[in-house]
Simulated assay, not measured.
Amino acid sequence: MNLTHRPRRLRRDGIRSLVSEVDLSASDLIAPVFVDATTDDREPIPSMPGHERVPVDEAVARVEEIRDTGVEAVVVFGIPESKDARGSRAWAADGVVQRAVRAITDETDAYVITDVCMCEYTDHGHCGVVEENAAEDPTLTVKNDETLDLLTKTAVSHAEAGADMVAPSSMTDGMVGAIREGLDGAGYPDVPLMSYAAKYESAFYGPFRDAADGAPAFGDRRHYQMDPANAREATREVELDVKQGADVLMVKPALPYLDVVSAVRREFDHPVAAYNVSGEYAMLHAAAEKGWLDLEAVAHESLLSIKRAGADLILTYFAEDVAQEL
């Protein structure tokens, strides 16, 4: 037998790493940080092993822990001291994210990204101002255009606090254009915008809603987040955000939507981010606790698959663990 082509020749130690097509590094990763204005102590998040809510005065220490692993960027999520129907603490100058960001940017070299959404700040848990009687009528939803002004005020307040990048995640039509105009008008034309350009109404968000106290009090988010059945629609959504001035394009979740990550990578020249969400993190932890999977191995393989699909940046709860391994 004459086998001219033997791919196994390039799988031996020494050559194997030289011909690897994808490289994963700590600088590809973004670590989430949950800052809680309602607590004075760090509080573990039961559904997300290894993660905590931290009080504002612990935000710097938490970010320094992340930086020590080699991860350079963080995204800050806030749990406010109070909530109301319009989520007014989202853009307050003394809000939880604003206070944390000022401290983090003053005392660390981390690259600070902020989540721009309303669900953690509204008493109904939806990503904007809801229509009247929405609690009784499931056909009613968020008031899109009225929400744009609130998202813009929130993004500008984050930039004023020192955020290096803002990341609107509400899937509000026109949010990128409104926020870009608001940032430019307020004197922040150099603050980039990472849009959650294709964010699906996914069942994988459960642990995050525990962590950020942002579950809807009624109904769901199917009227403004994308249908998991739709891939072509993602291209249309992303294209709209590109036209409105998005600098980075996010796909969320990651693992169930690698086809979408790949399509966005092919169709657009912008940097592509993917959010390896809380449910993806939790299910691997659960399987590892049962002894069914090697957590370190599957965490690394999962992130490698996201990078291979085309993501330049990965927002992941595995950031610290994988960075230390790398």
Rank of each mutant, 00 (worst) to 15 (best):
187 G>P: 08
178 A>Q: 01
166 V>N: 04
170 S>W: 00
189 P>H: 05
191 V>R: 01
148 L>T: 02
158 H>Q: 14
158 H>G: 00
158 H>F: 08
187 G>V: 11
186 A>S: 09
154 T>P: 03
155 A>G: 09
168 P>H: 08
176 V>Y: 05
195 S>F: 02
202 S>M: 12
156 V>F: 10
194 M>A: 14
175 M>K: 09
202 S>H: 04
199 K>A: 05
180 R>Y: 01
174 G>M: 03
169 S>T: 13
164 D>P: 10
150 L>G: 00
164 D>S: 15
205 Y>L: 13
192 P>L: 11
190 D>L: 12
178 A>C: 02
150 L>R: 09
172 T>Q: 14
198 A>P: 11
199 K>L: 00
177 G>M: 04
152 T>G: 09
191 V>E: 00
197 A>D: 10
151 L>M: 09
155 A>N: 09
158 H>T: 05
179 I>C: 06
169 S>V: 04
155 A>T: 07
185 G>M: 01
148 L>R: 02
174 G>Q: 04
153 K>A: 14
190 D>Y: 05
160 E>V: 15
190 D>P: 11
191 V>A: 02
183 L>T: 06
171 M>V: 01
148 L>I: 05
195 S>W: 03
172 T>M: 15
172 T>H: 02
158 H>C: 12
170 S>C: 12
172 T>V: 14
207 P>A: 14
187 G>T: 12
151 L>S: 00
190 D>K: 11
156 V>C: 12
204 F>S: 12
172 T>E: 03
190 D>H: 13
200 Y>A: 08
156 V>L: 13
192 P>W: 07
184 D>H: 13
175 M>C: 11
192 P>I: 12
155 A>V: 11
201 E>D: 15
184 D>L: 13
150 L>C: 01
172 T>A: 15
202 S>C: 11
198 A>N: 06
158 H>S: 09
178 A>D: 00
171 M>E: 02
194 M>G: 09
155 A>H: 07
209 R>M: 13
148 L>F: 00
208 F>T: 03
165 M>P: 01
192 P>Y: 05
161 A>V: 04
207 P>M: 09
193 L>R: 04
196 Y>Q: 08
179 I>V: 13
160 E>M: 07
195 S>L: 10
198 A>Q: 06
190 D>E: 15
156 V>E: 07
189 P>T: 07
171 M>K: 02
198 A>F: 07
175 M>D: 10
176 V>G: 03
197 A>H: 06
155 A>I: 08
149 D>H: 10
194 M>E: 02
202 S>Q: 11
150 L>A: 04
206 G>Q: 14
171 M>S: 10
205 Y>R: 13
155 A>F: 05
177 G>Q: 07
180 R>T: 08
175 M>T: 13
